[in-house]
Design a protein around this nucleic acid. Structure first.
Lengths: 335, 335
DNA sequence: GTGAAAGCGCTAACAC
DNA sequence: GTGTTAGCGCTTTCAC
């Protein structure tokens, strides 16, 4: 199965008639090698199909050229969330153009420290942590001994000096809410996200401040878990409470899609009976009936940005601790 | 940023008062170490927080303990396809329980051989290839020198002796089509998938044979690209051709969701005017209006199975070359 | 500008 | 049952 053994640096050296050191210099683009020698070595490398052995290289250089992408265990079931897929894609595609490799790490239910030990053990040069819940403590601590960049602002009680990339969730919610107001809605409810996630907290804040800034009274609030069934339940509770609202800002398109199903059953139609806007311009928003007016967060770009920041951090370049990805409103039929 | 240096095996040995070999044996669960010594070494390891250095280990053992998950470049843009997310999740979660690590590789547009060179270079113990198009040649060749398991049957012209995990696409299409027939539909069209992908070919075959086995004449066929817009276009063409059909089997839920939009615009209602069934019980099927009767393919389990086969292959266990994941029909409102 | 030599942390014969 | 020894493939001083 193994076929022929991979060629080593030594074999290249023999073929090119130079020493191993010289080959190593050529491989690492050292400026101080004669052009002719470079040419000879380069063709020897090509003829042999030589690829440097990462293990040997990282053993001596103390750099692994690999980056971990960590998905905390409790988030693993949300993996089907288009958000994760897009962020991972963005990070992977960015790193494909670099010398770094992306290692996917999922918290093991059996041994919650396995991932941390792996990260601490010098097996990667840095880590991207997709943070969603409030259990970020361990990873915030990890950041003291390893370059770490978070996707989404991590939750903690101290001043936040960690590196992270986030979209402006407050502003996203504000845009979506403002649109409802501009469409003439005055009693605006919200289906909020979990209040132990930054996105959940920020979006409810954006909704509230926008409503109040317009001189309106905030409508009823129900909290969901960012999933379609969670959104459906929240909408059901909203209706049971009496339905004193003419619009609802739903904190995620997945919840909105669940909520729409409940409204359909209740015989309420969007946007005539109720205006609706949401965040996440994903297929839940696009394929909803009616298609939803939603705030677009370029998640693929966010993934790329996280990876880029981490590479900069690893390579010692100076960077801003926080980056914010701009959002924009995509207007469709729901409001 | 690096904090204190990671402890080495030698430091553990010194602390435990034994030789490095003994520590190594303990770390590798060698049976021939005295229980007392094991205890001493184990606690020294714990006190120091020792984690073996993978680079050093793999340099000598010639095993990297890492597995590549390859996504061909032309598929990368389909990453948001829930299929990929689910397969990756299944593989990652399975591997989290093993000693293997998952490295995500995306074909680089700049240098299409980069991934292959990496794989050839002995940097991984094996590769999972998510195959979707007909460009699998290079990876089929790779399989001669590296353990490779494909997700989805790879396309080739020779006898297929590669390892792969697939769902029974012929049967899936047959189930979906049979359901339409059982509901009394007699003129059954199809929106097929790309005919250079195994799933596209197999599903149209399942549709055709089922229709013919029932003594019916196959309805019109239009080919889409598995995306919602592709499904919408195909449905438009189907309607332009005259609409001589009372049901349509759509080869993917994404295409079905696009097709439904076209039907809505045309004033046709499902299921009263037209019955519809599809494959992929994902959120496109669940959140469609009306919710779609769809064949469920447990893609997460498929991901886990691919990973499991590859690990078996790497570790020299004898396994079947092909595994098939069972499918089942989920009946909803569209037929 | 190029080569020689040392050593990264670990495993695996081989002694004892 | 445990220690000694040699090297895995590479980078990196240090001579020349």
């Amino acid at each position: 199965m193994t076929g022929s053994v991979a060629p080593t640096l030594e074999m290249v050296a023999a073929r090119a008639g130079v020493s191993r050191s010289t080959v190593s210099r050529v491989v690492n683009n050292s400026p101080q090698v004669t052009p002719e020698v470079v040419a000879i070595v380069t063709s020897a490398i090509a003829e042999l199909g030589y690829v440097p052995n990462r293990a040997a290289r990282s053993l001596v250089s103390r750099r692994t050229q690999s980056i971990a992408l960590v998905i905390p265990e409790n988030t693993a079931r949300f993996f089907a969330d288009p958000y994760f897929a897009a962020v991972i894609q963005g990070a992977a595609m960015f790193l494909a153009e670099t010398e770094y490799t992306l290692t996917l790490l999922i918290g093991s239910p059996d041994d919650s420290n396995k991932v941390l030990r792996y990260l601490q053990g010098g097996n990667v040069d840095g880590a991207l942590v997709l943070s969603h819940h409030s259990d970020d403590g361990a990873y915030l601590r990890l950041a003291r001994s390893l370059p770490v960049v978070f996707g989404g602002r991590p939750m903690d009680n101290e001043d936040n000096d960690s590196f992270y990339v986030d979209s402006d969730n407050v502003d996203a919610a504000a845009m979506a809410t403002r649109h409802l107001i501009e469409r003439g809605r005055t009693r605006i409810a919200t289906i909020a996200g979990p209040q132990d996630m930054a996105a959940g907290i920020d979006r409810i804040e954006g909704w509230r401040t926008t409503v109040e800034a317009a001189g309106l009274t905030p409508g009823p609030v129900e909290v969901g878990d960012f999933t379609p069934p969670g959104g459906a339940d929240a909408m059901r509770r909203l209706l049971e409470r009496g339905g004193d609202f003419d619009a609802v800002f739903v904190a995620s398109a997945q919840m909105a899609s669940g909520a729409l199903g409940v409204l359909r059953e209740a015989g309420l139609s969007v946007p005539s009976d109720l205006g609706m806007t949401t965040v996440d311009n994903d297929y839940f928003a696009i394929n909803a009936v009616p298609p939803l007016t939603a705030v677009e967060q370029p998640t693929t770009r966010q993934g790329a940005k996280i990876a880029e920041m981490l590479v900069d951090l690893i390579e010692g370049r100076t960077i801003e601790r926080h980056a914010t990805i701009p959002t924009s409103l995509v207007i469709r039929d729901s409001a």
